[in-house]
Design a protein around this nucleic acid. Structure first.
Lengths: 108, 108
DNA sequence: AACCTTTATCGTAATATTACGATATAAGTA
DNA sequence: TACTTATATCGTAATATTACGATAAAGGTT
């Protein structure tokens, strides 16, 4: 079907999965690494960083924006993309909660 | 195309994206939360935890296994799934590296 | 206004994902 | 051996994702 069921899951589970899904492509990892390091936030520079066409990169940026991890500001003729620190910190916290919830002894 | 390009990315970027992608579904989040808390690792108990059919859950388990986050041991008539702590810790480290690489000041 | 630059969107094709029921497989039990 | 239980795999349908070129839209420049 391709359609992910959301009923029967908590909002938090659905939200965390959505964030993880957004991180689930090498191009979007590169974009976030690039923005985190603040070398630039101009869209054109991001495109140059990637082995993908401009339209494809624009699509990836849109996904990251939709999930809230980045935001874009129009800056004259170009667009400046930045990490949304709120969403970023929340994602970090939720992920580290998941990874930290392990209780020592594994049974196999 | 649906086919993710991997050329032009580092191995680490591709690997991290693969892990994130595996986390990118609510059912797989639930499975990992459940296994991390060690209430049980029997496949049947995981199926009961989810609002999905047995075959669909089996598919999700397979994905988590393929990416290495969990491993399965046959235990008599049933199968015991557990988190692979090596992969788990590596994933945690790589993700916290990504989230920690932010350099204070955002430009927008 | 005409033009260039920058980014987003559209249209499209190929492939992947999600989900289910049905069936196969494997292990234990009567 | 026949039967039940537990899990995996197959087949299939619907939808999503990825990628590209072409084009639109928005802003600056001459």
């Amino acid at each position: 079907m391709g359609l992910t069921k959301t009923t029967g899951f908590t909002k938090e589970q659905v939200a965390l999965a959505a964030i993880a899904k957004a991180l689930g492509h090498p191009a979007r990892i590169v974009i976030l690494q690039f923005l985190a390091k603040q070398k630039s936030c101009v869209c054109g520079d991001i495109v140059e960083e990637l082995p993908l066409s401009q339209s494809t990169v624009s699509q990836h940026l849109k996904e990251l924006k939709t999930v809230g991890l980045i935001k874009g500001n129009i800056e004259g003729p170009s667009v400046c993309y930045c990490i949304d620190e709120n969403a970023w910190n929340k994602a970090q916290q939720n992920l580290s909660e998941l990874f930290g919830s392990i209780t020592g002894d594994s049974c196999c």
